[in-house]
Design a protein around this nucleic acid. Structure first.
Lengths: 176, 176
DNA sequence: CATCATACGTACCGATCGGTAACATCGTCA
DNA sequence: TGACGATGTTACCGATCGGTACGTATGATG
C-alpha cells in the first residue's frame, strides 16, 4: 500500500506475492515444522491465494526446499560473519559462532536447526528438502575440516567431527 | 498360522491385535516419522483393521505417545544395562553407553533418537507425544547430574549438560 | 482507445486424513 | 450348549490435504 514505487528495473522475475509466500513459509515451516503446515495456511497468512503459490513454486516440496536454501544462506551469513570479526583467527571464529549459537539457542522461540529438523521430517534421501539438508551438512563438515586444518590440529577431521557433534547437540538441546 | 499356542495364563489384558499394532507403529514411526505414517498404513501392515486400533488406543496421538514410552523403556534398558556391566564405575558406565551408541548410530537404518525426533515433529508442549519426549529428557538430565556427582565432578550440572550435548549431537549426526 | 501480457482470485478437484457406527465371526469358559 | 469378550468386515463421516482449470483485474504500450 505505502509502497507505490514501480517494479523498477530489477531483473527479478518474481514480485510481491512470491516473496510474501517465501517469508511466511519460512516462518511457519521453522516454527511448526514442514509437515505440520498446509499450503492453505501459508497462503492465508501471506494474504495471497493458492494459485499464486503454485505459479512461483512447483510443489510444496519445492517450496520447502527453497525455505531450506534460505535457511542455509542465513546460516552461512552468521558463520562466515565471524570470519570478518576475527580475521585470521580460526579458533576465535569458531568460538564466536558457538557463542552466538548459545545465545540464540536459549531463546524461547528457538526450534533447533531448520536443516536438521527437515532431515528428521523427511528421512528419504530423494526428497528435495532432505537433499538440501544433507548437502549442507556435507559442506559444513568440509568447511570445518578446512578450519581445523588451518588451526594446525593434529587430526583435523576428528576435531571437525567433534565440533559437528557439539553443534548438532546445541541445536537439539535448544529445542527442549 | 504356525502359532497355535493358547494365550496362556498371561495376566495381560491386551491380546494379539493391540500388540501387533504397537510393534508395527513403533517400527513405522521410528523409520518414517510419526506425521508421515497414517493409521491406515499401520493397520494394513499390522494385518489388522482400524477399529482394532481405536479399541486399544484413544487416538493416533495416544498411539504415538505409547510408542515413545516404549522407546523410552528401551533406552533405559540400554542405559541402565551399563550400570550392571560396570558396577560402581560411573565413568565406565557412561563411556559404555557412548560406545554402544556410536555403534548403533553408524548403522544404515539408524534414524536418530525417537524422542528427540518426536519433539521436532511436535513443537507444541501440549501434545501427548511431545510431553513424553520432554519428560524423558528431563529425567535423563537428572540422571546424568546424579552420575557426574557420583563421579566427583567439580561442577556436576555443567558436566551433565556437556554430556547431554554430546548425546544429542551423536543422535543428530547419526541420522545423516 | 484497443491490445496484450502479467499477476491474481474464485471455485473446484480427487485423494487421503483421523475416526466411527453397525454387524458378523470366532474362541474361550462356564 | 450358551453367553461373552475380543476381533474382523464393511461402509461411512467431515475435514483437510496438495494441486489446478479458468475467469478477472491491472498496467504499460501501440
Amino acid at each position: 500500500m505505502t509502497d507505490k514505487s514501480p517494479p523498477s528495473k530489477s531483473a527479478e522475475p518474481k514480485l510481491r506475492a512470491a516473496e510474501r509466500i517465501r517469508r511466511t513459509a519460512h516462518e511457519l515451516f521453522y516454527r511448526e515444522g514442514i509437515r505440520a503446515v498446509g499450503v492453505d495456511e501459508i497462503v492465508t497468512r501471506a494474504g495471497v491465494t493458492k494459485p499464486s503459490l503454485y505459479r512461483s513454486y512447483a510443489s510444496k516440496d519445492e517450496l520447502a526446499a527453497e525455505y531450506l536454501r534460505d535457511y542455509e544462506a542465513a546460516f552461512w551469513e552468521r558463520f562466515d560473519g565471524e570470519a570478518q570479526v576475527h580475521p585470521g583467527d580460526t579458533r576465535a571464529q569458531l568460538l564466536g559462532y558457538m557463542r552466538g549459537l548459545s545465545t540464540r539457542a536459549t531463546k524461547r522461540d528457538y526450534r533447533g536447526c531448520g536443516l536438521t529438523n527437515a532431515a528428521v521430517e523427511y528421512p528419504h534421501s530423494d526428497h528435495p528438502a532432505r537433499k538440501v539438508a544433507q548437502t549442507h551438512k556435507r559442506k559444513l563438515r568440509t568447511r570445518l575440516v578446512e578450519m581445523t586444518t588451518a588451526m594446525g590440529a593434529r587430526r583435523p577431521d576428528v576435531l571437525a567431527d567433534g565440533l559437528l557433534l557439539l553443534l548438532e547437540g546445541a541445536y537439539a538441546s535448544g529445542l527442549m
